[in-house]
Write a protein that binds this DNA or RNA. Sequence first.
DNA 1: AAACAATGATTAATCGATTAATCAAACGCT
DNA 2: AGCGTTTGATTAATCGATTAATCATTGTTT
Lengths: 359, 359
Amino acid sequence: MAGKRTGPNLSKIAEALGVSSATVSNALSGKGRVSADLVKKIRKKAGEMGYVPSRAGRALRTGRSGVLGLVLPDIGNPLFPQIAQAMERAAATNDYGVLIADSRDDVTTQTDAIGRLIERGVDGLIVIPRRGTRIGTVGCPVAMIDTPSTPGNTVSADHWQAGEQIARHLMELGHKNILLLGNDPASNVQNDRIGGMKAAFKRDISCQTLWLQPLLRKGGTAASLNLSERISQGVSAIATVSDLLALRVLTELQTAGFQVPTQVSVTGFDDLIFSPVISPALTTVRMNMSQIANIAVAALIDEINGNRDPKPKTSLQKKRTVPDTVMADTSRVPMELIIRSSTGPAPFDQTPHSNGETL
Amino acid sequence: MAGKRTGPNLSKIAEALGVSSATVSNALSGKGRVSADLVKKIRKKAGEMGYVPSRAGRALRTGRSGVLGLVLPDIGNPLFPQIAQAMERAAATNDYGVLIADSRDDVTTQTDAIGRLIERGVDGLIVIPRRGTRIGTVGCPVAMIDTPSTPGNTVSADHWQAGEQIARHLMELGHKNILLLGNDPASNVQNDRIGGMKAAFKRDISCQTLWLQPLLRKGGTAASLNLSERISQGVSAIATVSDLLALRVLTELQTAGFQVPTQVSVTGFDDLIFSPVISPALTTVRMNMSQIANIAVAALIDEINGNRDPKPKTSLQKKRTVPDTVMADTSRVPMELIIRSSTGPAPFDQTPHSNGETL
DNA sequence: AAACAATGATTAATCGATTAATCAAACGCT
DNA sequence: AGCGTTTGATTAATCGATTAATCATTGTTT
């Protein structure tokens, strides 16, 4: 792929040593049969000449580009930097490159983006879907990073377990009336997070779930969360599904004159960049992106190299419209609870008016 | 690069139509001499067969990969999503792909990362440097996006002009005693932003500049900004160099019991994802990333294709250690002021104790 | 009509690495 | 010595697109 036609290539090395280029290739790749000392000589010479194999030549011959595609439908995702970084590093250690493609949340754009990646000949695709993105058959292995509960998911953070951690933390602090705040009820990730929290709550905990997006759609941007009212009804903790949401809640509470965490505790998810620096610093939960990336990339490369359990592609299974994605040994990576100052003991004057659980 | 050895290629099309593969190539590329109706026939057939040219074959022959490298030294940059998206789109419209490389702010890692991109045969590099990153000669055209005042800068937002806009906005609101808050005094971007603000202030405006990072280094994380004290001394507006900093100030002010913007106005830079949703929503300034990306990519591709004014590479100029980067016609793109609710009229009881300008 | 130019298409070489097929020499065995 | 096996290296084909060089027509000019 190099634009320079100057650099040394296999035949240059071969010529310099008076051997054939095939021997040089074999020596460098460790395949074929080459005597030990010739191998050493060739390696040395290649080093001296600053030989760098041509990806284009190799790609043409082997049919493999050495590039993975990273598809991010939701560019607004504040985790993007972490994701991109982790993927790039995981790929680089395996001598792969990462080609990015984004589609601003638009299905058509996304199809185009995937198409472009495929046309560029990526050997595999890493897809971080938003909502119920359907991954059709694309002609190359696909790793999907969503939630453990999503069919076809390759690997992801254990959002459910993270929810449980948050819930346990709040319970230990004595909170008994908790407001769960989500944004998009169609999001698998958010549902897992909320599901985990609900599951961990003991019987004596009263909790309500509120989805912001449908609320905004109904009431316009002006729709208030009625936080003051809910707090006066006994809510002592607000557990949100994202740090962004938590930040919003935090500022609303502060302008309304509530003390955090003395009167109300607030939690988020994801440990976004601003979370440690706001005051009070946000209690949240962080995913281990590099581990997730490593697992995803490893699974993808295994599949690319064909070192995989043969998939049972019987006609019976054909009916299941599960996306044709790669599987990994570990599919869920635990998240880490980060306790900061936005959570504290529940206030004494707690008056739990348990009105049960709302959808 | 495609892993599939099944797809149609030039010779398949040629065979199907009984012509030579060279003719097919010429017909599709519009080069060489092919009769009009044969061109039409070939194009049609290619479409029917779903022909997609092999990048690897082309790359090998032409020595060009059709891929640009995007180097981001500072992964924590919250603008990353916007940058990556804009670059990807700009590149895609020119039929280029974008390979990412990040180096967590580490010089060695960055050199490695650039090296990996070069080895992969990128045709050009887009570098968004942090601090005084030195771009050596890398063997391919480089576009740099930093600030207009940085030597070797290809294109960037006009941070200076943006600073002026913020300053004018604050002056129009009647503020006369303003605190300028930066983070890293070594950052070109931040210096431009602050420089623009200072330049726009009239003579009767008193302003101080504070750099956070050196302060933290001296005083540890506990170092306070003494905001309350400064406000009691007459400061009615705090203009920060980043939305992240503004958020920090905002929460500190709120916990200290100040009303924003009634008592103090606060401004940021960059319009980060949280800026519209916090309360009060942040007055800030936004860069036109897609325009910047388009200019950078266009300049890069022009250079790659050799459609450039020949650089005067006389030995005289050799002394100037200006990075060997690409130049663009427009090198600065204006930023857009976004007025929200964190700024308001200066309070009446303003008592400007002008103590001059501090470094 | 002869010489020449323009048009339209083909041939064949090339980019660089990989690899199956082949060959030559050295070695082991009875 | 004769035959088979191992070892070590070479040959040559291949991947797919591009393009300079070439050839065969048709059209133009004097």
